[in-house]
Simulated scan of single mutants.
Amino acid sequence: MKIKSLAFASALFIAPSVFAQDTVPIEATAQEGAEAAIADPVTIPDDGAFSDALADDAANTEANSSPNAILPLGTEVILRMNEQVTTSGNEWEEGDTFTLVVDQDVMHGQFVVIPEGSEAQGRITSLSSRGAFGRSGKMDIELEFIRVDGRQIAINGSYRQEGDGATVATLGAVFVAGPFGGFVTGESASIPNGRELSATIANALELNVPADRVENTPQVSEVDSDWRTYHEFTDRSLSPSGRVMQARQMRDAAIEEAQLTPAGRVAIIGIVE
Rank of each mutant, 00 (worst) to 15 (best):
L171T: 11
P115V: 02
D252Q: 15
R147E: 14
H231N: 11
A37I: 13
L127Y: 05
P72A: 07
G194K: 04
L127R: 08
T185K: 13
A63K: 04
E27I: 09
D164A: 07
S129V: 10
G242D: 15
T125C: 11
G117M: 10
P210E: 10
A9R: 11
M250P: 03
F98P: 11
R248D: 15
G178L: 09
R228N: 12
L100A: 08
A55G: 00
E93L: 04
D57H: 02
S188D: 15
T61P: 01
G194N: 10
I38Q: 03
A49F: 10
T261G: 01
A39M: 04
F133Y: 12
Q21V: 13
S190D: 14
S198F: 13
D103Q: 12
S136G: 10
L127G: 02
A34V: 01
A169W: 08
L207R: 08
S158L: 05
V176M: 15
F133N: 09
G89V: 04
E222Q: 11
K4T: 07
A253I: 07
T170H: 11
M107L: 10
R123P: 00
D40Q: 14
A199R: 07
P240A: 07
D56T: 14
P41V: 07
V209F: 11
P262G: 09
I141F: 02
P262V: 12
E62G: 04
I124R: 05
T170V: 15
M81H: 05
N203Q: 13
H108W: 04
V223E: 06
Q246P: 15
D46N: 15
G178Y: 12
Q31P: 13
R123Y: 02
V106Q: 05
S118K: 06
M250R: 11
